[in-house]
Design a protein around this nucleic acid. Sequence first.
DNA 1: CGGTGTGAAAGTTTTCACAGCG
DNA 2: CGCTGTGAAAACTTTCACACCG
Lengths: 227, 227
Amino acid sequence: MTDSQPSAGETPSDSTVPKVVVSRLSLYLRELQRLQAAGQETISSSQLGTLLGFSDAQVRKDLGFVGQFGYPGVGYRCDELVLAMRDILGTNQPWPVAMVGVGNLGLALLGYRGFGRQNFSIVAAFDADPAKVGQTIQGLTIQPLDELATTVQEKHVRLGMIVVPGPQAQEVSDQLVAAGVEGIVNFAPVTLTLPPHVQVVGVDLAIELEQLSFAVTNKLVKTLPQE
Amino acid sequence: MTDSQPSAGETPSDSTVPKVVVSRLSLYLRELQRLQAAGQETISSSQLGTLLGFSDAQVRKDLGFVGQFGYPGVGYRCDELVLAMRDILGTNQPWPVAMVGVGNLGLALLGYRGFGRQNFSIVAAFDADPAKVGQTIQGLTIQPLDELATTVQEKHVRLGMIVVPGPQAQEVSDQLVAAGVEGIVNFAPVTLTLPPHVQVVGVDLAIELEQLSFAVTNKLVKTLPQE
DNA sequence: CGGTGTGAAAGTTTTCACAGCG
DNA sequence: CGCTGTGAAAACTTTCACACCG
């Protein structure tokens, strides 16, 4: 019920940035971090675009949605832009995440180092299977689901990750919402019904392959960028 | 784009279907398969749309891109539409997949049952680590990378899955392309450079979380559908 | 110069609205 | 009737092109 308080600091993050633009911002950030690590100081929109398969104009327009970062005649300073993108995408602050479902995939995600790089960390893991509860993995003790609400509170968890089989996903999702998470990554192959104030991103591995089988079958040369 | 290909035919899969439409077709198929399993015979565009968070018009337009499947006054017959969608997306035929990189995530994907459901099966797994080569997992013996080309040929592999760390991904990708795969799912957090006839879908788990942290921070209520 | 930021034009996708059909 | 398929309108996104800047 509270109003929205963007307060993102200095960026004009008021207006709505199209979703597709946000997804490209993530790609820019990923590439910029690589360039930065490689010691590159500055980059132009056309260089960055070429690296990712976009036009220079698109890079500039996209960045224009969230601020003004460039130096005419020079381009963008990598480290400055990395900082700005992280601010905008939210990864300058830590994000404690709760995972539900510690099967094959859950285990793998617990061990995935890539999350930490962007300030996400899985701080609690839950499973409905009593045989799994109590086991310690990657330093985390698997908890029963009835501890979810308390733990979310205690550990200031804002995001949940659903890694249970499809048929259980909606119920888990309801529990995460009741516990107060603000966003959910859903690895289960079902569409979740959620209150509108809870954000969701779905990752269905079979669907990704399906997109590919369509593209291959139809020899789509159409679009370029990945992810 | 000028004139239309008036009804008549069955699958006018000639013209280019926008990428965003294809991704929704996958969601329709997923939902339809669930409905079918639940015994539902028919469904209208508005029911299907409601289930997924789309408008009825969008469902009809999307389906209109790939054919004519509906019965006025009735809707769509679930089993018919499932078959048609699978034909279009390519999952009525089997897709043998080669996986490269058998770490945490690779292991989890090897055990993931969801692929089989859509006719994908991982028929070979490769790793550069000599300690892993020769191990048998899920009935598959891990092979060295130098066997990639031969195995791709022998097993008629058309798709590859890259599950190696970022720095190795481009090289692996080059090898997959050289071996003749037509499409790649890339789980490594880098953008690959590929010849234009090879299709790619990128899945970067950290980026998915990033999209969520942006959405949560900016209280985006904007868009609805997942995946 | 080389390169940004940005209006205006072109192109694409979504929504509307309605004829037509079983 | 209820619901599809589809042109036409509206909304949105990308590309173009150019003023301006260091």
